[in-house]
Amino acid sequence: MVEIYDGSLDVKSIFNRWFDEQRNNNYGAFIPFVGVIRDEDGIDGLSFDIYEPILAQWFDGWQEKAKARGALLKMAHSRGDVWLHTSSYISAVFSPKRRVALMLIDEFVEDFKANAPIWKYDLRDGARIYAEDRSTPMNGAGLLGGKL
């Protein structure tokens, strides 16, 4: 299950809880990933829209892939406004061995950027501006735009 929070993530408490929930399940590796909002291009922060039904399906598909490799995925994301130097996205892999966890966190985060139905906006001078130039069309995009 993806955990969705309004505003910035409380990174420490979420990681602590995930660790405590899994520490007795004999996973030898716990690899966290934290996305932190950088001060760049004059933004005040970022804002996010999420479409939860398809996000849940996308995540469940990844959880199945992880399970097939003996691993477990966790993820939390912000909705709405998130300010500089705070976190909007964290994820983690638990696995028996480190190699699987290192590979999975790489594959999972890359696909997250390309196919999780989340939309990012720059917050600048009170405006909320779609970050179109940093966004990626999802798999299968353009279906309705082709010649008929």
């Binding site: 996010f48 966004s135 990626t136």
Partner: peptide
């Protein structure tokens, strides 16, 4: 549903 280009994180 139409899903425009995404950028999580």
């Amino acid at each position: 549903s139409l899903l425009p280009p995404v950028c999580g994180g």
